[in-house]
């Protein structure tokens, strides 16, 4: 049974069809890439899965649970986490707090206990602080735990964003252009890093990316979008020589 199954997903912005008839299924522990030119609707698909937009038509199921209509925090709580194309950390807050915020759904105490600092409050705070520090130390960020997130260098901010997403304890991780702004050397490191995350946290990953080197290097399957429509899907080697894909990326004449 697939982990995530999307059927006939369609989304329109005031008449403009951003995603049309998108069908997709991913098995547990797979790593699938979504590629396509700018404006093809890749990020819209992520926004639809995570509930930022409500789909006009179609269904998204995680296991047996229908996700269309749920609010983003409810979807995150069911096991889908994501990162953003342009980093969206909580800039003025500390690195530790960035990660602890992602534990929001796992806290057992009530607002009344929080206001009076009674009951389960102390034990729970200690638990999630320890958990957050453990996670930060896995990502080699624990030395900067009390630093403000905005003071971190760019590469570490990307790493922190992935750590924060993993703190929600997802089954499915959506990475939106993780290699944006990286040089070829860093991209190779990132490839190893993503493979390592997949193994260590045993998550399923969907990846949006422009860098062909990265996509071809680690993804098992690819989906190619253009103007909201799926123009090709399959193994990496098949996609590479698909005339439709070449046309979308390079234009008609070159493809011929």
């Amino acid at each position: 049974m697939p982990l995530l199954e999307i059927q006939k997903l369609t989304h329109r912005f005031a008449g403009l069809c951003a995603v049309s008839d998108f069908n997709f299924a991913i098995e547990p522990h797979e790593l699938v890439g979504i590629i396509g030119p700018n404006g093809a609707g890749k990020t819209t698909v992520f926004n639809l899965i995570t509930g930022v937009y409500r789909a006009s038509e179609g269904s998204i199921r995680l296991g047996r649970q229908e996700l269309v209509g749920l609010s983003p925090h409810a979807i995150t709580k069911r096991g889908i986490a994501r990162t953003f194309q342009n980093i969206r950390l909580f800039k003025e807050l500390s690195v530790l707090d960035n990660v602890r915020i992602a534990h929001y759904g796992q806290i057992a105490y009530t607002p009344a206990e929080a206001l009076l600092h009674i009951g389960r409050f102390r034990a729970e705070e200690k638990r999630i602080t320890d958990q957050a520090l453990d996670l930060l130390s896995i990502f080699k960020l624990d030395e900067m735990a009390s630093e403000k997130a905005k003071n971190l260098p760019y590469g570490l901010q990307r790493r922190l964003e992935i750590a924060r997403a993993l703190a929600t304890e997802p089954r499915l991780l959506l990475l939106d252009e993780p290699a944006a702004g990286m040089n070829p050397n860093e991209i190779i490191q990132l490839m190893e890093f993503i493979a390592w995350i997949r193994k260590t946290f045993s998550v399923t990953i969907i990846l949006i990316e422009h860098q062909m080197r990265l996509v071809m290097g680690i993804c098992e399957r690819l989906m190619v979008l253009d103007f909201g429509a799926t123009i090709a899907q399959g193994l990496c080697s098949e996609i590479q020589n698909n005339p439709k894909v070449l046309e979308a990326y390079l234009g008609v004449e070159v493809a011929q």
């Binding site: 609010s71 925090h73 709580k77 986490a81 950390l89 909580f90 800039k91 003025e92 534990h103 929001y104």
Partner: peptide, 12 residues
């Protein structure tokens, strides 16, 4: 800091 990101990080 960022309302959408916070909703996506499971904050109700």
């Amino acid at each position: 800091e960022d309302e959408i990101a916070s909703d996506l990080m499971s904050v109700n």
